[in-house]
Amino acid sequence: MAGVREQDQYMPIANVIRIMRRILPAHAKISDDAKETIQECVSEYISFITAEANERCQREQRKTVTAEDVLWAMEKLGFDNYAHPLSLYLHRYRESEGEPASVRRASSAMGINNNMVHPPYINSHGFGMFDFDPSSQGFYRDDHNAASGSGGFVAPFDPYANIKRDAL
């Protein structure tokens, strides 16, 4: 494609890896090939969703693709379990955007926006993975990670894994 630089073809892999590690227990490892595979997949995901959003925008003869177009595309392409929490996210983003910039920066610095971004009931969606009550599961991350993590989803952790391995 003309004008597309090679380094823009994929999402930056360091960021992808950081997001991957956030969902995995500490003893989990990721092969370099798997990192690249996920990098390719998320890059394809962006093209997949935005192409559909753009198509609807053009069909309706509008020149600006909106967030609603993106959310509509997700629902149409089978990611409806993404569209709902993301619409909540977008709603809260717009609310915070209405504040003066200085207040928004102050709120962000104090972590208030992080709290707004992750209201408790979002956990019930499980973001399409698992519907479960986090309070009944073991947590494997400290509060800091929880505050900065996406959607508050917590990976299940096997507390007996180390014991089994040590016993072998």
């Binding site: 996920i38 998320v42 993106v70 959310l71 990611f79 993301l86 973001f127």
Partner: peptide, 17 residues
């Protein structure tokens, strides 16, 4: 849209991973 797609990608990466 950059903000929205950024969050969507984060969720996607974590689900796939």
């Amino acid at each position: 849209i950059p903000m929205l797609m950024s969050k969507a990608c984060e969720i996607f990466i974590q689900e796939l991973t």
